[in-house]
C-alpha cells in the first residue's frame, strides 16, 4: 500500500499544483467572459508571453527586479490588447470579437516565434521555489506546495475585492447587465480594463509558478494550458470565480491521475479535459456554480 502511495503521490501532488496554476489562468477567462461574453483566446498566449519575459528579463537584471517587472509588463500587455483589439469591436457581433481574439493569439505566438527564433527558452530557476523537497517519500519542488496555498490566498483576496470595493461592485453590475449598468453611470471601459488587468496579473503569477515546473518555454506553451483553463471556467460555471478554481483543481488532478495510469494512456491526458467539457455542456451547460439565468435574450 505504501509503495502504491509512494508511486502515485507525485502525480497527485503535481495534479494539485497544476490545478492551482490553471485556476489562476481560469479566473482571467471567467471574469472576461462574465463581463464581455468573449472567450479570450489570447489569454493563454499572454500567459506564455509572461513566461518568455521572465526568461529574457532574468538575463538582464536580478530576480527581485525581474519578477515585479514581468507582472507589470504582462498587465500592460493585457490592457493594451483590450484597448487595441477588443474595444473597437464593442458594438460588433460577438463572433467578430472572438475572431479578433484568435487573431491576437496568432499574433502573439508569431511574435514569440520571431523573438525566440523557434528555440525553446530555458526557464530560469527561481530561488527557493525551485528547490526540491521530499514528502512521504516523493520528491517534488517547493512550488508544488506553494501553488495551492498562494492560489487560495489570491482567490480569497479577489473575492474580497469584488465583494467589498466600489469597482468590484461595478464589475458585478456589468456582468449582470451590460447596457443597464452603462445607463447607471458606470464607466464601462474602466471596468473592462480592470478585468483584463486582474486577469493578466493572475496569469503572470500563474506563469511564474507553472513554468518553474517545466524546463523551458516555447511559443505554443500557452495554448494548451489556456484551453484547459477555459474548460475549467466552463466546468465551474462561467462567470463564477470559486467555480473556476474548483474546476481547475478537478481538471489538474484528473489529468495527472491519467498520466499516472501508464504510458499507454498519457495521450488522453489532454483529451480528457475536453471529454469533461462536452459532458458538462450536455448535462449542465451552466456549469457547477453557474447562474440559472436562461431567459436572457
Amino acid at each position: 500500500m505504501s509503495a502504491f502511495i509512494q508511486a502515485k503521490l507525485p502525480y497527485l501532488l503535481s495534479g494539485i499544483s497544476v490545478g492551482g496554476q490553471y485556476a489562476l489562468i481560469a479566473i482571467g477567462y471567467t471574469m472576461v467572459y462574465g463581463i464581455l461574453r468573449l472567450i479570450n483566446f489570447a489569454h493563454g498566449d499572454v500567459f506564455m508571453v509572461a513566461g518568455l519575459l521572465m526568461v529574457y528579463l532574468t538575463t538582464a537584471m536580478p530576480m527581485y527586479l525581474s519578477i515585479p517587472l514581468v507582472v507589470a509588463v504582462t498587465v500592460a500587455l493585457g490592457f493594451t490588447i483590450e484597448r487595441v483589439a477588443y474595444k473597437p469591436l464593442r458594438s460588433a457581433p460577438r463572433m467578430s470579437v472572438m475572431i479578433s481574439a484568435i487573431g491576437v493569439s496568432y499574433l502573439l505566438q508569431n511574435c514569440a516565434l520571431y523573438f525566440t527564433g523557434g528555440l525553446a527558452q530555458i526557464y530560469p530557476a527561481i530561488p527557493w521555489l525551485s528547490d526540491s523537497v521530499t514528502i512521504g517519500g516523493a520528491t517534488t519542488k517547493i512550488v508544488t506546495l506553494v501553488t495551492p496555498v498562494l492560489t487560495v490566498a489570491l482567490v480569497f483576496a479577489l473575492v474580497l475585492f469584488i465583494q467589498k470595493t466600489k469597482i468590484g461592485m461595478a464589475m458585478r453590475a456589468v456582468s449582470r447587465d451590460f447596457e443597464t449598468s452603462q445607463l447607471m453611470g458606470i464607466k464601462i471601459n474602466s471596468v473592462i480594463s480592470m478585468t483584463f488587468v486582474i486577469g493578466c496579473f493572475l496569469a503572470a503569477v500563474g506563469s511564474l509558478l507553472y513554468f518553474t515546473n517545466y524546463p523551458s518555454v516555447v511559443p505554443t506553451s500557452g495554448a494548451m494550458p489556456g484551453l484547459k483553463a477555459f474548460v475549467a471556467a466552463v466546468f465551474g460555471g462561467i462567470g463564477s470565480i470559486p467555480g473556476a478554481v474548483i474546476g481547475a483543481f478537478i481538471i489538474g488532478i484528473c489529468e495527472n491521475i491519467i498520466k499516472g495510469l501508464g504510458s499507454n494512456w498519457t495521450v488522453f491526458s489532454d483529451a480528457f479535459t475536453f471529454v469533461l467539457l462536452i459532458i458538462i455542456l450536455l448535462v449542465k451547460p451552466t456549469g457547477i456554480f453557474g447562474e440559472k439565468a436562461t431567459d436572457k435574450v
Binding site: 472567450i39 475536453f274 467539457l277 462536452i278
Partner: peptide, 9 residues
C-alpha cells in the same frame, strides 16, 4: 461560443 469550444474540444 459553446459550440466553438466544444468542436475545438
Amino acid at each position: 461560443d459553446y459550440l466553438a469550444i466544444a468542436t475545438l474540444g
